[in-house]
């Protein structure tokens, strides 16, 4: 105990950390109909409002990372980046849909050793337009059996981009079909990306305790923006 009695612990106070992960499908099909560029544009556009939301919360610091997957998976932003410094470098699209590789990368970072155990629930947003082409089920099962991967410990949503997205696979990733949202146009994708980045980050950083959920049970998320009622324009829908 010697020497510690003079240290006022107030000197070590820190705000909560909110870890936010984009997981972006960069397979070849994302090139069609401008989907990858719509994704890039949407993330660029949501940055100012995400920063604004973070500034309005004096009790949490949002840190952003991103994974891209096509043939394998790589960190697009590997360092937990304060949202004030967060810049989006455009992704391009080609190759396969190795979602399992992305889940394995994520799992490697969401460990008690790297994250601690008392961070705010990390927000994970999976964006995909297709079906996985690698062994994703084993990767997901492994992740779901880790400390941070168990149900209720992260906020997971998926955005199904276009009609060909495999929503069943995405629901397995999020744990619930109600947390998979369809984007059939660039505008809807932008709305959902902004909702995920601003609203879900606010929700996850509320600091409220959640009771350990029974398997399959999750807390309801804030609702996404309503789907605009517009005349169908087949040229603009995916």
């Amino acid at each position: 105990m010697e020497g510690r009695e003079d240290i006022d612990p107030l000197g070590s106070v820190s705000r909560s950390k909110l870890h936010f992960f984009w997981i972006a499908d960069c397979s070849g099909s994302m090139k069609a109909q401008g989907k990858i560029q719509a994704l890039n544009n949407a993330i660029h556009e949501c940055i100012p409002s995400t920063r604004e939301a973070n500034r309005s919360n004096p009790f949490a610091d949002m840190l952003v990372r991103a994974i891209r997957f096509s043939n394998g998976a790589q960190w697009h932003i590997s360092t937990p980046t304060p949202v004030e410094e967060f810049l989006w470098k455009d992704l391009d699209a080609s190759g396969m849909t190795d979602m399992g590789a992305a889940i394995r990368l994520l799992r490697g970072e969401l460990t008690p050793e790297k994250m601690g155990r008392r961070a705010l629930p990390p927000v994970i947003v999976l964006l995909s337009d297709g079906s996985p082409t690698d062994a994703w089920e084993g990767a997901l099962e492994d992740f779901n059996n880790t400390g941070w991967g168990r149900p209720g410990r992260t906020v997971r949503v998926a955005v199904a981009i276009g009609r060909d997205a495999d929503k069943e696979v995405l629901a397995k990733f999020t744990g619930n079909s109600e947390t998979v949202f369809e984007a059939d146009s660039a505008q809807r994708l932008a709305d959902l990306i902004k909702w995920a980045s601003v609203t879900l980050s606010k929700y996850a950083s509320s600091g409220a305790s959640q009771v350990d959920p029974s398997p399959g049970a999750t807390s309801p998320l804030p609702p996404p923006p309503p789907v605009p009622v517009e005349a169908d324009d087949d040229d603009d829908t995916w």
Binding site: M1, R118, P121, R153, Q210, D212
Partner: peptide
């Protein structure tokens, strides 16, 4: 407990991650 040594009586429960906790209301 604070004496010649400092002892934390309970380590964090294996189930407790993030804002998840156990509750008397369960």
């Amino acid at each position: 407990l604070v004496g010649p040594q400092i002892e934390r009586i309970f380590d964090l429960h294996d189930d407790i991650y993030g804002s998840v906790t156990h509750s008397l209301s369960q």
